[in-house]
């Protein structure tokens, strides 16, 4: 919100309860008044303008909305914003600094792990959660770790390759 100008709005309906939440998003503390029913995914997208987190279903199946919640991959469409109060969230926008790429991002580009790109942010964050825990996964472990995320374009083979590519790069980085 601009500090030069802040519009004072009449509350739409006085009986709509709001709660103040503070969430650390991509390393930055963000505070907002939210309706208790607001989904975390919608807070990120509409409230904070972080539109890299996508929503692709109503049933917690597609994983397009996957973000890291205190380092673990969660589906942000399945969590209320109020539940995230006091926690840390990482979205695709927080994977790397402005002019950098995370090895997982590089891997997806290098191995053609995306086509329409809609599933990609969620896939990459699910992959990050995996590699943070298991830096040297087998193909089966990658497939299992990504099995909460749907991709309609790629057929997964190149996504798996992308994650293995990133695992290698991360390992060689930490070795040197």
């Amino acid at each position: 919100m601009s500090s030069l100008f802040e519009e004072i709005r009449e509350p739409v309906a006085s009986d709509v309860p709001v709660r103040r939440v503070s969430i650390t998003v991509n390393g930055e503390k963000r505070t907002a008044d939210v309706e208790p029913r607001l989904l975390l995914a919608h807070l990120l997208r509409q409230g904070l303008g972080l539109t890299g987190t996508h929503t692709g279903c109503d049933t917690s199946n597609c994983g397009a909305c996957t973000v890291l919640f205190d380092g673990k991959a969660i589906k942000s469409c399945t969590m209320l914003a109020v539940q995230a109060d006091g926690h840390e969230v990482t979205t695709v926008e927080g994977l790397a600094g402005p002019s950098e790429l995370h090895p997982i991002q590089e891997g997806f580009k290098d191995e053609h792990g995306l086509q329409c790109g809609f599933c990609t942010p969620g896939m990459m964050l699910a992959a990050k959660a995996l590699l943070d825990e298991n830096p040297d996964p087998t193909e089966d472990e990658v497939r299992w770790a990504l099995s909460g995320n749907l991709c309609r374009c790629t057929g997964y083979q190149n996504i798996v390759k992308s994650v293995l590519w990133a695992a290698q790069k991360l390992q060689s980085q930490s070795a040197s």
């Binding site: 539109t51 890299g52 996508h54 695709v92 991002q105 995306l114």
Partner: peptide, 14 residues
């Protein structure tokens, strides 16, 4: 890919 891997795609809902 340069925009998609950064979450900078521009889909209708964005």
């Amino acid at each position: 890919d340069n925009r998609f891997i950064r979450g900078r795609g521009n889909y209708v809902d964005d």
